[in-house]
C-alpha cells in the first residue's frame, strides 16, 4: 500500500525526469531551444489561436466593406469613413474623458490610502481586505447594486442629497455636462464629461482602486526603512521625505500602474455595459469600445468596426510607447 502510494507520489518527478532526459537528447549546440519550445508551446498555442489569429483576421476584415465581412475589398475606406464620422470622434472623446477622469484620481487616492495603510501596524490586514473587496466582486453584480443606488427615484444617492439639502439628481440618466450642472448652467451642457459618465467613472474608481492600493503597498514595502529613517534623522519633514524620498523610490510602481491603468481604461467595457444597459443610447456614455461593439454586433458593420478597433489598438500601443519613452526614462530605479 505504502509502496503504491510512494510510486504514485513519485510519478510527477519521474515524468519530469523523463521529459528532461528527452530534452537532453537534443544536440548540445541547440542550447535552450528544445526546452523553450516545450515550455512556451502551450501558452503560445492558446494565445496564437485566440488572440493573434483573430487579430490578423480582424485586420483583413477591416479592409472590406459591407456587412459581416462579405463585402468587396475597399482598402482603407473604412478607416477614412471612421475618421470622417462624428460619432467616432464623439466616442473617442468619451474614452479620453474617462481615462483622464479615472486614472489620476485612482492613482492619487490609492497612493494616499496605501501610504496610511503602510504606516499603521494594527488592523492593517483588515483594512487592506476592506479596500480590496470591490476588486474581487463581479462587475455585473456590483453594477446592479450601484444602479439601485443611483436610481433617481428613491435611490440612496438622492436620499443623501436630500439629507444635505441638495436637489435630487438624475445621475446615470443625466446627459448634461458635469461642469454645466456644477456652475449652474454657466458652461454649455455639451462641454466636458456628462454626469452619467462621471457616475460610471466613480463606479470604476471604487471598483478598481483596490488593485492599485495593493500594488502601491508592495512598492512601499520594498523601500528600505533605513532610507526614510535616515532622511528623517537628517531633519527632513514628513512631506519633504515623501516628496524627495518616497515618491522617487515609488516611481516604478506609479509608472507601472499608470501604463496598465491607461491600457485598461481605454478598453473599459463591462462597467459601461452593465451600468448603462448596453452602453445606453445616449452618446455621452458611449466610449469607443461600446461604439465599436454596437457597430460590430448590433449593426453588422464588421469591416468598419474592425477598422475602428484597429485604430484604437494602434492608439493604445502608441500611447504606451510614448509613456515608456518620455515618462519611463525619468523613472527612478533603485
Amino acid at each position: 500500500m505504502t509502496r503504491m502510494a510512494e510510486t504514485f507520489a513519485a510519478l510527477p518527478d519521474r515524468l519530469l525526469a523523463l521529459l528532461d532526459s528527452l530534452l537532453d537528447r537534443f544536440p548540445r549546440r541547440m542550447g535552450d531551444i528544445p526546452a523553450a519550445v516545450l515550455l512556451t508551446a502551450p501558452a503560445l498555442l492558446v494565445l496564437g489561436a485566440f488572440s493573434f489569429t483573430p487579430m490578423v483576421n480582424a485586420l483583413t476584415l477591416s479592409l472590406r466593406g459591407g456587412k459581416h465581412g462579405d463585402g468587396a475589398f475597399i482598402g482603407l475606406g473604412n478607416y477614412l469613413d471612421a475618421l470622417r464620422s462624428g460619432e467616432f470622434w464623439q466616442s473617442l472623446t468619451v474614452t479620453i474623458y474617462y481615462v483622464l477622469g479615472t486614472i489620476p484620481a485612482m492613482l492619487a487616492f490609492s497612493f494616499l490610502i496605501a501610504l496610511v495603510l503602510h504606516r499603521i501596524s494594527r488592523a492593517r490586514g483588515f483594512f487592506r481586505t476592506l479596500y480590496f473587496l470591490p476588486y474581487v466582486t463581479s462587475v455585473v453584480a456590483a453594477a446592479m447594486v450601484w444602479r439601485s443606488l443611483f436610481n433617481p427615484r428613491g435611490g440612496v444617492f438622492n436620499l443623501l442629497m436630500a439629507w444635505v439639502g441638495v436637489a435630487p439628481q438624475q445621475w446615470l440618466l443625466e446627459p448634461r455636462g458635469m461642469l454645466h450642472l456644477l456652475t449652474g448652467g454657466a458652461v454649455n451642457a455639451s462641454i466636458g464629461p456628462s454626469m452619467a459618465l462621471c457616475c460610471v467613472m466613480l463606479f470604476d474608481i471604487w471598483h478598481g482602486c483596490g488593485f492599485m492600493i495593493v500594488v502601491f503597498l508592495a512598492g512601499l514595502s520594498s523601500i528600505p526603512r533605513e532610507v526614510e529613517e535616515s532622511a528623517r534623522i537628517d531633519g527632513a519633514g514628513g512631506l519633504r521625505t515623501l516628496w524627495h524620498i518616497t515618491l522617487p523610490l515609488l516611481s516604478p510602481t506609479i509608472f507601472f500602474l499608470g501604463v496598465v491603468g491607461v491600457v485598461r481604461a481605454f478598453q473599459a467595457f463591462n462597467s459601461f455595459y452593465a451600468l448603462t444597459q448596453g452602453g445606453g443610447n445616449t452618446q455621452d456614455t458611449r466610449n469607443l469600445i461600446l461604439y465599436i461593439y454596437s457597430q460590430f454586433y448590433d449593426y453588422g458593420y464588421w469591416g468598419y468596426a474592425t477598422a475602428a478597433s484597429t485604430m484604437l489598438t494602434l492608439a493604445i500601443v502608441a500611447l504606451t510607447a510614448l509613456q515608456w519613452r518620455f515618462v519611463g526614462r525619468r523613472v527612478h530605479y533603485s
Partner: peptide, 17 residues
C-alpha cells in the same frame, strides 16, 4: 509589434469568413 500589425493588415491574407 505595431509595425507587424500594420504589415499584417497590408498583407491581405485570405478572407477568414
Amino acid at each position: 509589434l505595431s509595425a507587424a500589425c500594420c504589415l499584417a493588415g497590408c498583407g491581405g491574407s485570405p478572407k477568414s469568413g
